[in-house]
Nucleic acid binder design. Structure first.
Lengths: 157, 157
DNA sequence: GGAAGCATACTCGGATATACTATGTCCGAGTTGACGTGG
DNA sequence: CCACGTCAACTCGGACATAGTATATCCGAGTATGCTTCC
């Protein structure tokens, strides 16, 4: 799985903690965890295309959450960064060569069906978890995190 | 996900249909679906290392199932081909840069925890499905498939 | 006729190239804010 | 003092390199088979 998924998820939480008042630039979000700024920018663009964050150019510009955290699921972020297509894609090799009959088979490939069911379970688990729940859990573990981020953003003016 | 997973799964079913009497070479299994023989051989080696199939060299050699289909799950094959490590690996970026505190955090990353739970659901779904169940479903859809394979193997002596 | 020895062909197994995607970097278009200037 | 125009800096956005992995290929070690030869 792409490294950018982890970056995007942390960035969403950081955006939520930064306060809704002002946007945060990709460079600041990247510096907070020592990530490559230009590449994180790429991931944030993907989030913007998916409607998860909104971007504003120019000075004082940057990214901010486009909707509240409790309406963003893990699935939304994963789909935005990784793309919408399934991880296991059936190439229908059973139709190739001597193994494939003359006419296409009537039913779907049993293997693809089973793999699809498993992947559906994964997607359901991701869709059942909102970023707000994760934020609450993270704040229970480290209650000072939001304030530290806001202080650092204000100081690094 | 790797293309080889699909090839390995189909090959396992084909090995089950070929009959337990004699081994089938990687070249024959590949020709049945017009796959690159040498590369399929690589995937079968991975299955052999995992104890799913057994290999015998020399003439009349090849691969055969090492244990019955009902004791092989989708998870076994996926783990053998893809490797045992998780798809989402937490790099603990929260500990890097100004965002990371002085001492390591006490609890696990909430994001990694949630992603791990989703992946666990996927793995459970894969482990709950045996290849024998898939074989039964495939035979219901195409009852003539096993016999066609055996006839082709005998003809291509 | 039978058995031993040998050559042979066929198999896996791993070491070696190539292609593609994820990763990382760079520069341009656009916008906002500040500053200077004129009224 | 206020309003307007100009300028400059900062931002995203997409186009351009690079690296790492999945894909594909090739050749060597090993083994069972069949044949030849000798007893």
């Amino acid at each position: 799985m792409s490294e950018g998924v982890e970056w995007a998820l942390h960035s969403c939480l950081n955006l939520a903690w930064s306060g809704d008042g002002r946007a945060v630039s990709a460079a600041r979000l990247a510096a907070w965890h020592e990530l490559p700024a230009a590449y994180l920018n790429k991931q944030l663009q993907a989030l913007a295309r998916a409607g998860i964050v909104s971007s504003t150019p120019g000075p004082r510009g940057g990214f901010r959450l486009a909707r509240p955290l409790d309406s963003i699921t893990l699935m939304d972020v994963v789909a935005a960064v990784e793309g919408p297509d399934e991880a296991f894609r059936c190439a229908e090799i059973r139709q190739q060569g001597p193994g494939g009959g003359e006419e296409p088979p009537a039913a779907d490939c049993a293997i693809a069906h089973a793999m699809g069911r498993a992947e559906l379970a994964w997607r359901r688990a991701l869709a059942a978890q909102t970023l707000d729940e994760i934020r609450q859990q993270a704040e229970r573990q480290a209650p000072e995190a939001p304030e530290r981020l806001r202080a650092w953003l204000a100081a690094a003016r």
